[in-house]
């Protein structure tokens, strides 16, 4: 019986993993395609399409996306930390209502948010914000609920007795925040920032309303290109941005140590 269960477990595990990774494998294979058409020929491959990526057509949108994502991630982290501190740690009056309000953007479809932001900017006479400033602001609206949620969870899990212990040992509030609260919730802050980074870097539905010529993010550039052609360069762009995001996750995890949080231990 146990063998059947464990066999079933392994089969489902392999299926799920295949389900998740097969599209990626196809994209990777396509990016190595020897001809200008996307073909999947396992024994013939080239990396020449990756050479095209350094052209400004791809490099500029990549740089813009990366800059926006870094800013959005940092700002979401800082704002999320401040909001979560007041709401989840200090439990200010009405904290539950404020928490719901902070998470409410999640309930609004991105398309609706995008239209709303453009309408707001034009009616408020801020149409010149369309472009990078608008993209950053819009992405923060999108990512802040995730950051708040992740950081607030870490704050909720913070044992209040640690704070009391610190207090009884003579630590002032500032010292307790610096030496106890922040180091212990750091993984939560970094996982919130990682989410913000990925969401911003990959965003299409919101960005599509706010880009303008010469200030286009990478996903929007990919979509625009896809309207006219489907070739291995596109696959190479996707593989490169995938590797970039993985590298960012790796760095955040090294600095923030959030896999420890996810796996339920900490060092």
């Amino acid at each position: 019986m146990n063998q059947i269960v464990s066999g079933f477990f392994w089969v489902s595990l392999v299926c799920v993993m295949a389900f998740i990774t097969l599209p990626l494998i196809v994209v990777i294979a396509a990016s190595l395609s020897p001809s200008a058409q996307v073909t999947l020929v396992p024994w013939e491959w080239t990396i020449r399409w990756y050479g095209d990526l350094v052209a400004s057509r791809w490099l500029d949108p990549f740089m813009l996306s990366a800059q926006i994502a870094v800013l959005v991630s940092v700002i979401s982290g800082v704002l999320g930390l401040l909001a979560a501190y007041v709401v989840a740690f200090e439990k200010c009056p009405g904290h539950a209502a404020i928490m719901s309000f902070l998470l409410s953007p999640l309930a609004v479809p991105q398309i609706v948010k995008g239209v709303a932001i453009v309408l707001f900017l034009s009616s408020a006479g801020l149409y010149r914000w369309v472009g990078t400033p608008g993209l950053i602001a819009a992405h923060i609206i999108l990512t802040l609920p995730f950051a708040v949620r992740m950081i607030a969870t870490a704050m909720f899990n913070f044992d209040k007795n640690l704070d009391r212990a610190g207090q009884s040992l003579g630590a002032t509030k500032a010292q307790r925040i610096r030496h106890l609260l922040l180091p212990i919730i750091k993984p939560g802050v970094f996982s919130g920032m990682t989410f913000a980074f990925i969401i911003s870097f990959n965003n299409i539905p919101l960005s599509v309303f706010l880009v303008r010529p010469g200030e286009t993010t990478l996903p929007i550039t990919v979509i625009n290109y896809l309207e006219y052609s489907l070739d291995p360069v596109l696959a190479a762009v996707n593989v490169a941005s995938l590797l970039f995001v993985l590298a960012v996750i790796f760095v955040f995890e090294k600095v923030g140590g959030f896999s420890a949080q996810i796996h339920g231990g900490s060092k």
Partner: peptide, 20 residues
């Protein structure tokens, strides 16, 4: 007088050791 100024030692049921 706030707790941090009382100089009173505390031992908790769950120990409350700083995990980091």
């Amino acid at each position: 007088v706030p707790p941090e100024k009382r100089r009173v030692g505390l031992v908790f049921q769950n120990y409350a050791l700083f995990p980091h």
